[in-house]
Design a protein around this nucleic acid. Structure first.
Lengths: 333, 333
DNA sequence: CCTATTTTTGCAAGCGAGTGCAACAGGCGC
DNA sequence: GCGCCTGTTGCACTCGCTTGCAAAAATAGG
C-alpha cells in the first residue's frame, strides 16, 4: 500500500511553537484558546495543509459523524432523488453519508448494518429491504440510531417515516371516478412491500365502498418493463379498464407507453392513469402523468432533525402526506 | 448525544479468557492464532455482538478503506447509474463509499476533498466539477489517490478516465449522413465541460470534412428542459435541421418531446436524433433513442482495480469506448 | 504593589485497535 | 535428558486526537 503521510497535529504544534493541545483546541469549537495562538495555529495548519483526523476524533468523542445510507437499486429515479436530498441535508448538519449498496445478496442489508457498526456510524438510514430483528436490536443496543423509510414494520426505538399511502390511493380513486371512469384497475409489482400493499388496499377499499370492482394485477419488480407487461395483461381483459392506478411512476410510464404504442389507446381520453412518486419523467411531456409526489426533502428533513435530537426514547413514527400533482393523464382536473 | 456503547476487543478478551492481542489477531487475516483460541474468541465476539472498530483500525493501519465519491446532481440518471456501479464494485473490493454531494456552492468540490482528507479516505473519485489544483496537489501529497471521471484536465499522479467523445461524435455524424440527413445541428448545454466540448468539436469537424455546415446551439444546464428550449431554437431556423446530435440523452428526450408535441415532427422520418449516455429512458418506447452507451461498469472497474494496485506512479489515463446503441431515432441502421 | 480571579496552556491519560519483540510451550531428533 | 525449531501468546508501544486537571499567565480589584 502507498505510504500515507497526512500531516498531524504534532507537526502543526511544532511549527507554531505551541503544544499539541493548543492545536486540538483551535479546532474544537468552544474551547479556550487565545486569539494569538489561534492565529499562529491556523497559519501553521494552512501552510502544512493540516486537517483534523476525523477517524481519531471519532474515536475519542465516541461520535464519528458518519451516517449510513442503506439502499438497493439506487439508480432508480425516486431512490436517487431521496439520496440526493439526504446527502444534502446531512452535510448541512455537518454529518457525512456512507452509501451502502445492497443489490447483491439477500442478507446484504444485515451485512450493511454490520458495516455501519464497524465504522461506528452514528446512525443508519434504511431505504430498502428489511433487516433481521436481531441485527437492528444490536444497532440500537450499541447506541446507533436507526431510521426506516417507507418500511412500515415496527421497530421500537427507531424512527419510522411513512407516507399516507392508503389515503393517497383512495384519493386517486375518487379523482378517477370524478373523471368519469368506471372500469378500475390496479397495477402492482410483486415486491409486496408494506407501502405498496397499503396503496393497493386503499384503492381497492375505495372501490368496494362504491360497489365497483377493481381488477388487480401484479407482476415482477417495480420497473418500466413490468409496466409494459402489466399493460398487456390488463388491456387485453374482456372488460378493458379505463382507469389504472400504477403503484409507482416507473410502472406507469411503461404502462402508458404500451397502451399508446401497442394498443393505440389515447391518454387520457380512452385511458386515465395515475402514478406515484412524481419522478422527473412524470413531468416529461410524453407522459405528463398525474401522480403523487414523494416529499423527499421533507422526508430527509424529518430524518436529519431527528438524528440531531438528544432524546430518542420510545417508538417514533412520522406519517407524511404525498401531495397529488395534477397533470394530463387524467381527464378533468 | 446518546451514549454509545459499542463492545470493544477488551471485553471480548475478558469473556474469552485471553489477551486483547489474541482478539486482534483473530480478526487479522494471516496472523498467528491457535485454532482453540480463535474458536473461543469468535464465540465470545458473537455472543457480545463485537465488530472490529474500523475507525481505530484505520488509525493504526493508516488505511481507512474509505473511498469518497464526489458528485453533483446525483439524481441524474447517468450519474446515479455510475454511482451504483462504483459502490457495488468498491464493496466487492471490500472498500466503502462515502458520498459527498456538491450541489451547493461553487467551491464545494474543494470542500468535499477537504472532507475526504479529514476522514483519511484512501482515495477520492470525482464525478463532477473540477477542484483547484492546490487542493488536488494536497490530496496527492498526502498519499490519497485521485480518480477523475470525464474531467479530462490533466493531473499528474491521478487516474483519468475518459471516453472517446470525439470519435463517438464523428461516428454519429457518419451514421446520420448515411441515413440521408443533410441539415445537421448540434444541441449542447452551456456547461462547457471538456467531454461535452469534445463531442461538439468532433461532430463539427466531421461536418467540415464533408463540406457541411453544422448549426450549433447551446443553452442552460444539461437537462430535459434545456432540450425543449434547444428544440425551439433549432427547429424554428429558416433551414430546419433534419439531424440533431444531442450532447446527452436527457437533452435528447426534451428535444424529441418538443419536436413531436410542439412541432409535430415525426422521428425519425422527418428528424433524426442521436443522444449520449444510454440512460434507461433512452430505451423507453416513447424515445427509442439511438445513443452512445457510457460503459459504467467498465469505468467503475478501471477505477477500482487501479485503486487496488500498489504502484500509482506517473500519469495514468484510460480512454474507453462509448458503444453505439442503434435504436429507432435514426433512419436505417 | 499585592492578592484574588479568570483565562490560557501544557501534561498526561485515555479512545480501540495492530504489531514487533521476547517469553513460553510443545514436538522432534539425537 | 538436552538442544533446537516452530508456533502461540502477552506485554508494551504506537497511531492522532480530546480533555480533565493543575500550573502559569493575564487581568481585575483593592
Amino acid at each position: 500500500m502507498s505510504r500515507k503521510i497526512f500531516v498531524s497535529a504534532k507537526e502543526v504544534a511544532d511549527r507554531a511553537g505551541v503544544s499539541r493541545s493548543a492545536v486540538s483546541r483551535t479546532f474544537t469549537p468552544g474551547a479556550s484558546v487565545s486569539e494569538e495562538t489561534r492565529r499562529r495555529v491556523t497559519e501553521a495548519a494552512d501552510a502544512l495543509g493540516y486537517h483534523v483526523n476525523h477517524l481519531a476524533r471519532g474515536l475519542m468523542r465516541n461520535e464519528s459523524g458518519i451516517v449510513c445510507l442503506i439502499v438497493s437499486e439506487l439508480d432508480t429515479p425516486y431512490r436517487a432523488s431521496l439520496i440526493r436530498a439526504l446527502t444534502g441535508q446531512l452535510q448541512s448538519a455537518s454529518k457525512i453519508a456512507m452509501l451502502i449498496n445492497t443489490d447483491r445478496s439477500d442478507d446484504s442489508v444485515d451485512q450493511a448494518l454490520r458495516q455501519a457498526i464497524s465504522y461506528r456510524a452514528d446512525a443508519s438510514i434504511i431505504l430498502s429491504g428489511m433487516p433481521d430483528r436481531s441485527i437492528t436490536d444490536l444497532c440500537l443496543k450499541s447506541g446507533q440510531r436507526l431510521v426506516l423509510i417507507n418500511r412500515d414494520e415496527d421497530r421500537e426505538g427507531a424512527l419510522m417515516i411513512n407516507l399516507n399511502d392508503r389515503e393517497a390511493a383512495r384519493r386517486s380513486f375518487f379523482a378517477l371516478l370524478r373523471a368519469g371512469c368506471r372500469n378500475f384497475a390496479f397495477a402492482n409489482s410483486e415486491a409486496m412491500t408494506p407501502s405498496l400493499m397499503a396503496r393497493e388496499e386503499g384503492f381497492c377499499e375505495a372501490g368496494r365502498e362504491h360497489g365497483l370492482e377493481v381488477s388487480v394485477e401484479r407482476f415482477g419488480p417495480t420497473t418500466y418493463q413490468s409496466g409494459v407487461v402489466l399493460a398487456q395483461r390488463l388491456l387485453t381483459r374482456e372488460k378493458r379498464p379505463d382507469a389504472i392506478f400504477c403503484v409507482n411512476d416507473l410502472l406507469a410510464c411503461g404502462l402508458m407507453d404500451a397502451a399508446r404504442h401497442q394498443f393505440n389507446l389515447a391518454v387520457p381520453s380512452e385511458l386515465c392513469v395515475v402514478g406515484f412518486d412524481d419522478i422527473e419523467q412524470a413531468s416529461w411531456s410524453s407522459y405528463n402523468l398525474t401522480t403523487f409526489a414523494q416529499p423527499v426533502e421533507q422526508i430527509a428533513a424529518e430524518a436529519v432533525t431527528w438524528l440531531d435530537q438528544v432524546t430518542s426514547a420510545g417508538s417514533n413514527s412520522r406519517r407524511l402526506d404525498a401531495e397529488l400533482v395534477w397533470r394530463g393523464s387524467v381527464r378533468g382536473g
